[in-house]
Amino acid sequence: MFELLNSHYNYFAVMLLLGIGLYMLIESRNLVKKVIGMNIFQTGIFLFFITLAFRTGGNPPIIKEGGGPYVSPLPHVLILTAIVVGVSLTAVALALIIRIYTEYGTLDEDKLKQLYYD
């Protein structure tokens, strides 16, 4: 068990991040916290991709004389893109939240539901 934890700790970190993120997303009644949960969830996925790229003894994928072996550059590139997407999503979400707050004066999901369905 401990050995598994030791050799695969990065995967456990991924699971932990995904779990925390999803839990916040579902459980939290505060809209801002929901968005934070969403971010944590995505971070878990980013970490998962970066983990994929790892190889023991690999160098950063910058080609130079006798530099190999390299870690895989592809996941890094993908995650750079995904981070950009994630940031823009957060921005849109926060913009919507500001609008909701100015209109309804609350960020509590339950209260909002009451106002919303009246």
Binding site: L22, M38, I45, L89, I97, R99, I100
Partner: peptide, 24 residues
């Protein structure tokens, strides 16, 4: 209408989770 913003945020959160699962 601000109710559109509420609907959009709901859409955003669920949609993002969907897309994230796809990414995973």
């Amino acid at each position: 209408d601000a109710s559109a913003a509420v609907a959009a945020l709901k859409y955003l959160i669920i949609g993002t989770v969907g897309a994230s699962l796809y990414l995973l």
